[in-house]
Structures are given as structure tokens and as C-alpha cells.
Design a binder for these strands. Structure first.
Lengths: 369, 369
DNA sequence: TGTTAGCACTCACACCCATTGAGTGCTAAC
DNA sequence: GTTAGCACTCAATGGGTGTGAGTGCTAACA
């Protein structure tokens, strides 16, 4: 792995890049990274010598550190400073060196307490969790909501308001409700509205938004004649909602937590990152996660966006009924406490998944209000 | 007014606090404030002498400045610096000295362009306007949404989902839709749901949420017997929604714009203010506005919250059908460009009011999708 | 009596420069 | 292979000095 990691960066000093990380190098690298995570200060050989029990002198460690730097795991801000981890170093640490952080009982119970929020709508709930969680962790939290594409329609209801407008209410799978006002060309009375509603219900329910068959649509135009304009608007709404899933609900909380890190004491940098994260499109890209990944860690330049080049994101997804419906992640400087962050976010998404199962499982309707 | 403004701060050096601001003092004070708004640097006597056409020497101006300082309108950061306006100085400026800023054609047209956003839901629309507007003005924008209390219910619809739950959909006056899932003790079939819906519609619609008569509620329990639990949940939802109006929708946009001001180059200060504004309860207090006030300016310590003591807020309300439904404001350092901010926010709220009238007027249903 | 020139004084800020100390790399000895 | 010793580097710190913008006071002037 040392090899492939090394290759990744294109380093190939003969005799160096072939070098496996031996146990001692691993311990030294780990010590340096953990120290740097704590202090944000370059770590010197003396500090490393004192902090671990290898019983070797600073001079020896200096040699090893020089090796680690050659291999690309460490960097030196300037000649007479200690070493700081490179992105590659963090990657090595995250993949092979770090120990799993065990959450304390207090942390777990606080996390569980989070789930006691009595909020009916999913989005408000997740948003609120996000806010509190950001205070809990002192990181910035980002996340995404269930994507509409995978959500089925459970119920249509067309409600006439007056002669010129009606409201279309769509209840989805996970019981969130989308609605829109639809202008009427011809007045629709309550009975007609009910008829249209039931036809829509017969033909379009229990299908993911994205998979409504065009043929079905055509047949609907035939069955509900005289209301072409109305139908067009209804389908346009459905279509827009499907499209909207591409900029599906994304959110962030505790964005000012970034200002806690010395990395962002430079106000310009802080502003740049905060603005980047305030844009929904960017956020959407940032929380992207392949479904099979349990936890994804993006370190510094591994993030595609230049604005994220000096921060890391730890992402994990939450599920409802076994299916991934959303993502939550922690944002911090590349120096973030990965071990803790990973355990933490895993625990959170597990709790949320459990909550959602409880909330939306037929067996357990939870509390409505 | 010089007198009352002065009294407000309790200053009463004999022979000084009685002093009216003569024309020259007004010009000097105005010049200093406008200069300070531009540069954020203390303003010296030479600068004042150069900037206005009073044709008096810096020495004379120094005397006048000393007077203005005695009267409480100016402050000196340290002995050998120029003067900066005090909160009282700004207040005087805002109330009596500043000229109305005339918006340029470009500014007006950009503001109008804002209103072209095709978004159906009021809250998304206002939020989006807020974001763009914050980019336009380079200030932080805060605001509040229509208060639910004054909104009437237009339509109830109870939609059974399965044997154990139903969805209650409430369409309000301004066509926003609130919904909740309600657990069922006894299954409710579609017909019963329709019956309950229509009884609710007969008795509770076209009333402001806050004014539902307790007697009506009692009579409803009698008419819809056998569904006490369900009704309780429904009323609880209504009640909660009414209560929710106390922490009605508030929002902010462009909060990182604060970091543009040298006043907030101190990261700790910036963080404090940003966090304050991120809390909905605080925000709610900040946007409070008495209905008759067209524009409200809160300067520095005039804000009750200590966190807002070094910033100013310019607020204005927007209306729908002649009634105040929400507020929008600009947040900046006390040194903000009041003249411009006032014209700007007035124009914005006018535009929004016009938009809302167009959108929700029966005569003009706008576009549903 | 109001205005102004002159002058001494204040004070933040920038700059220079020497010192300090943490940390390195190299070499030679163990 | 490990280590002690040593010369070297370089950011950071702090004292000293000069600069300049700005003031307040005083005395002279219109």
C-alpha cells in the first residue's frame, strides 16, 4: 500500500518508492499526524521521541522523518520547522494507521437524545439535527435529504380553490407533501376534482417519480378529456419535481464553526469556503456519495473543487427501510480528527436510520404531531 | 431635536447641551459621517476642510469638532486620531442630516429583475430573493415570512394513508400548504375522511388560525363522534401551527458578507455576530417591527441584544393586499451606508409587495408551476 | 468675537535589527 | 543501525526609532 500510495503521487526516487512502510515508520507517521491534529503546529523530532515508546533518539527519528518526507507522507513548511502531514500522509493514516475511536457513553447518549426531537416533517427534523449536531462536534455539518427520484407517489389530491385555481397536493412515500397552485382554464368543481384525483391515484401512485411511463401519460390525456391544460400543468409539476431532485434538498449547519480552526483565521479563506458551502449546487456536489460506501473521506485536494482543497469532508449516508435516502458529513480542515469524526458520523447516521425506520415503518407510525 | 437627542444620552454640560446644532455644525457632522462611512478611518479636521465648501480653516473645524464631541455626536478613538461618529451621531445623521439616496436606473432594474423569479412557494421565493439581494447589496439580509396567526385556513383535507395513519393537509389563505401525519386509533375510510374534511371546512375555514372559537371546537367533538383522538390530534396540529407563528419563519442570507467589513476582521467578533444571526429566536427578535413604521433603523446599542451593539439594522416591511405580512432588513456595521440602505430596502419591499399582490390577487392567479 | 496660523504634543504604525529558540541535516564515533 | 555533537536556518519576538496624521492651546488678526 505504501507503494501504491506512493505511485499515486508519481514519486519514484529509485530505492525509495519501493520502500514499504516498516512498523517504526508507521508509528512515527501516526504520532506526527495525531500530534499535528491536536496542536496544528509542525511536529519536531524531539516531540515524536517523547510521545511514543520506541526508545529511539530524536536523531534517528530525524532520519526516518526525512525518509517519510521523501516518500511524500510529510511536508516541511520551511527548513527549520518540524514536519506536517501531506494529504498523502493523511490518506495513509486514514486507511491504515488510525485506530477506531470509541465513542464515550456520554457522546452516545447525547447522540440518542438528538433523536428525541419531536418534529413531524422530515426536512425540518434533519435540519434541526444538523444544527444541534454541529454544536456537538464543533465541526460544520453538511448533508442531503432523500432524493425525490427514488420516492414514490402515494397520493394525489386536487383541491379546487376558486374558479381560476386549484391546489395539487402530492403525498410521497416518505410522507412528505409537495404542493403547487395550478391555474385553471376551465373551472373544476369538487366532483370533477375528485374524479381526476382518483384517476391520477389509480395510474401514477406507487411509482418512483422518475419512472412514470410515457404511455400511461398519453392514456391519461384520453381518459381525462377536456382538461388538457390542467393535466399539462400537473405533469409539468411532477416533471419539475423530478428535475428538482438534481438540486435536491441540501443543507448545512454550524458553518461558523470553521472560524474555530486556526486554518481559517485568514478571513479571506474562511469567507471563500463559507460562501462555497452556502451554494446549493456546490453542496450538492460535495455530499455526493456512492451507495455502497459506508463512510467516505475526502482529504484536501482529493475534493474536486479548488475551494475545498484545504479541507476534508467525512461523509456517511443514512437509510430508510434499508435504502440510502440521504447523506450527512462533517467538514473541517485537513487536520481534522478523522478517527473521532468517522465514529461520530457513523453513529449519527445509524441513529437517523433507526429513527426513520421507526417513523415510517407501517408497524410503528410514531407520533403524528 | 438636537436637544432631545442629546438628552437621550443624559449629557448635560451646562451651556452645551442646550446648544442647537447650527448649520455649520450640521455640515461638519454630516461630512465626517459620510467620510467615515466611506473609509472606515477616523476623519481629521483637514479632511473635513477639504471635503466641503464652508471655506473655513482646519483650526476652526477643530473647534467645532471639539464641540460636537462634547455634545456626544463624535468620539475619538485616541488623542491623536481623527473623530468617528458616535451612535448618537449616526442617529442625528439618519433623522436629520442625510439626503435621500436616489437609486440608479440600473439598481432599480436589477431589483425588478429579482421579481421575475418563477417560484411558486412563497417561502422559497422570498429566500431566493434574499440570497440574490444580499449579493446585490453586499450586506447581510435578514427577514421574516408571513405570520401564520393572521392567515386564514382555506381548506382542510384529511387523506387516509393506511389503517394506522392519515395525512391532514391544510391550505391557507396565501396558498401555502401545511401538512402533518396523524396516527389513527380507529381506521378511517375514504368516505369518513371526506365527511370529516367537509365538516372541518364548514366550521373552521376563513378564520385566522388564532381566532378559532373554543365553542366551535366543542360542537365539532359532538358532531364528529367516535373520532375524539383524531380530532384532538387535528386541533393540536392547528394549535401548534398557531404557536409556531411565534417563531415564525425567519431567515438570513449572505451572512458571510459581514466578513467584507473591516469591522469584522476580528474573527471572534464576526463569529459571534454570525452565530447570533443564525439562531432563529434571535433573528425573530431582530426583525420585529411595529406595523406603522415604514422603515426602522436600529443603530448599534439601540439594538437590545449586546451581540448587535456594534452593528446596525435597516428594516422595512412588505405587504400583501395592503396588510403587513413580513419584514426584510439589511445588517451591517454601524458605519453602514444608511442613505443607500434605506432607499434600497424600501424599493425592495415595494417590489415584493407588488409581486405578492399580483401573485395572490384573485384577478391574477399568475403561474401555478 | 470669531477665525486662523503656529507650535508643541500625542500616539499608532511601520521599520530595522538583534536575539531567541525550535528544529534541521550532516558527520563522526559508538 | 544508532546516536551525540555541531553548525546552520528561519520564524517569531521585542526593543528602539522615525514618521506622519492629527490634536489642543495660544496668541495674533480682522
Amino acid at each position: 500500500m505504501g507503494v501504491s500510495a506512493n505511485n499515486r503521487d508519481g514519486l519514484c526516487f529509485p530505492g525509495v518508492w519501493i520502500m514499504e512502510l516498516d512498523e517504526r515508520k508507521k508509528v512515527i507517521l501516526g504520532t506526527i499526524i495525531e500530534n499535528y491534529i491536536e496542536t496544528a503546529e509542525p511536529v519536531g523530532s524531539r516531540t515524536v521521541a517523547k510521545r511514543n515508546r520506541l526508545d529511539i533518539s530524536p536523531a534517528t527519528i530525524r532520519n526516518e522523518m526525512a525518509d517519510l518526507e521523501d516518500m511524500g507522507y510529510l511536508e516541511q513548511p520551511h527548513t527549520s520547522a518540524g514536519r506536517i502531514p501531506s494529504n498523502l500522509g493523511y490518506r495513509m493514516y486514514v486507511d491504515h494507521l488510525m485506530k477506531r475511536y470509541e465513542l464515550t457513553a456520554g457522546e452516545i447518549s447525547r447522540m440518542k437524545a438528538l433523536m428525541e426531537l419531536k418534529i413531524a416533517e422530515l426536512d425540518t427534523l434533519i435540519r434541526e439535527i444538523t444544527n444541534i449536531y454541529s454544536r456537538l462536534t464543533n465541526y460544520t455539518v453538511i448533508g442531503s435529504m432523500p432524493e425525490t427520484k427514488k420516492v414514490s407517489i402515494k397520493h394525489f389530491q386536487l383541491v379546487p380553490i376558486d374558479d381560476e385555481a386549484a391546489i395539487l397536493v402530492v403525498v410521497t412515500d416518505n410522507n412528505s407533501v409537495k404542493d403547487t397552485k395550478i391555474p385553471l382554464e376551465t373551472p373544476v368543481d369538487v366532483r370533477t376534482a375528485a374524479r381526476i384525483s382518483s384517476i391520477l391515484n389509480e395510474n401514477l401512485t406507487n411509482l418512483p417519480f422518475g419512472e412514470v411511463d410515457p404511455d400511461v401519460i398519453t392514456s391519461l390525456y384520453a381518459r381525462i378529456s377536456g382538461y388538457d391544460g390542467l393535466l399539462r400543468n400537473i405533469f409539468r409539476f411532477i416533471y419539475d419535481t423530478v428535475e428538482a431532485s438534481d438540486n435536491a434538498e441540501v443543507f448545512h449547519g454550524g458553518i461558523t464553526n470553521l472560524l474555530n480552526f486556526p486554518e481559517y483565521s485568514n478571513i479571506y479563506r474562511a469567507k471563500q469556503l463559507m460562501e462555497y458551502l452556502s451554494d446549493r449546487a456546490n453542496l450538492h456536489r460535495a455530499v455526493a456519495l456512492r451507495e455502497h460506501e459506508p463512510v467516505k473521506i475526502c482529504i484536501g485536494s482529493e475534493n474536486k473543487a479548488a475551494e475545498l482543497a484545504d479541507c476534508s469532508i467525512v461523509l456517511s449516508s443514512y437509510k430508510a427501510n434499508g435504502e440510502v435516502v440521504g447523506t450527512i458529513g462533517l467538514v473541517g480542515p485537513t487536520r481534522m480528527d478523522y478517527s473521532r469524526a468517522v465514529s461520530n458520523i457513523k453513529c449519527l447516521t445509524q441513529q437517523i436510520s433507526r429513527l426513520l425506520d421507526k417513523k415510517y415503518n407501517k408497524k410503528n407510525t410514531g407520533k403524528g404531531v
